[in-house]
């Protein structure tokens, strides 16, 4: 079992993860975090579960994870950003996870735009942010994060080949220490964003896979595909692709490496 005591002993954040609710089985940590948020959860509140029965990615794709082996959690981010900065909160979180893993372990992590964290082209982390907003601005963000830590075998069908840190490293990791590390990095990124948005897109680019490489982006509308060379992201987090028609920018789409 995940030990909240052990986790708290190693946690060096100001707010992230200071309030925790841990569960053995939930539908989805995002759902519980959202409910808690509606009932007054503090900024940085953490919901963690050993097993999700309805873990999800975007478009309600399933997030599959072996119970008790990995990290599946959600963080409540309260009233921090104007709407324009929420994209960068996603970007910052991806950078934080990628950096936390790469700094703690001898593996090379990369981000597949917008926010999968991969090792050697295999996915070890998925991030899904959910928020409610009206024109008055963004209220609260629920940051759902799944990291494959100690799972050794993956069966079933995946959009991207999966891997885990344990598979890459050859040994079991402490999930408590890893989560404490990751939350500290996320907090740094979010704090940096609150103070000034400068820089996060540059840090992101250092982790971005496919930069300078041929890519194909499937837009959701009518399956239109855009092909070109990934050029980086702009200050809003949008992907820039050099196409035969010039440099174009995209806020959404399904990115595939070509070549």
């Amino acid at each position: 079992m995940f030990s909240v005591g052990n986790f708290h002993n190693n946690l060096r954040t100001r707010v992230l993860g200071q309030s925790v609710r841990d569960f053995s089985v939930v539908s989805s940590t995002n759902d519980l975090a959202r409910d808690w948020c509606a009932r007054g959860a503090p900024d940085g509140a953490l919901v963690i579960a050993e097993e999700q029965t309805a873990g999800r990615g975007r478009l309600n794709r399933k997030w599959l994870s072996e119970p008790g082996k990995n990290l599946t959690f959600s963080v409540v981010i309260r009233n921090r950003f104007p709407a324009a900065l929420t994209n960068l909160a996603v970007v910052g979180t991806a950078v934080a996870v990628s950096a936390a893993i790469a700094e703690a372990f001898p593996v090379q992590t990369q981000i597949k735009w917008p926010n999968d964290v991969q090792i050697d082209g295999k996915k070890c982390c998925g991030i899904l942010f959910e928020t409610e907003s009206s024109q008055a601005g963004v209220n609260n963000i629920i940051a759902g994060i799944g990291i494959n830590v100690n799972q050794r075998e993956f069966s079933g069908r995946y959009m991207t080949d999966p891997t885990s840190l344990s598979i890459e490293l050859g040994y079991e990791l402490s999930r408590e220490l890893l989560l404490a590390d990751i939350l500290l990095q996320i907090e740094h990124e979010l704090d940096a964003l609150t103070e000034s948005s400068g820089g996060v897109h540059l840090r992101y680019q250092q982790h971005l896979k496919d930069i300078g490489q041929p890519v194909s982006l499937t837009l959701h509308s009518e399956g239109e595909k855009v092909k070109g060379i990934a050029a980086g992201i702009d200050k809003t987090g949008a992907l820039q692709i050099m196409t035969p028609d010039g440099l174009r920018r995209f806020a959404a789409g399904e990115l595939t490496s070509q070549g």
Partner: peptide, 19 residues
């Protein structure tokens, strides 16, 4: 406050509420 739709950007699923 009812959710009318979702706008996605960067895997941020943004539920848009009625004003």
């Amino acid at each position: 406050g009812d959710v009318l739709c979702i706008i996605e950007a960067m895997k941020l699923m943004n539920e848009i509420e009625s004003e």
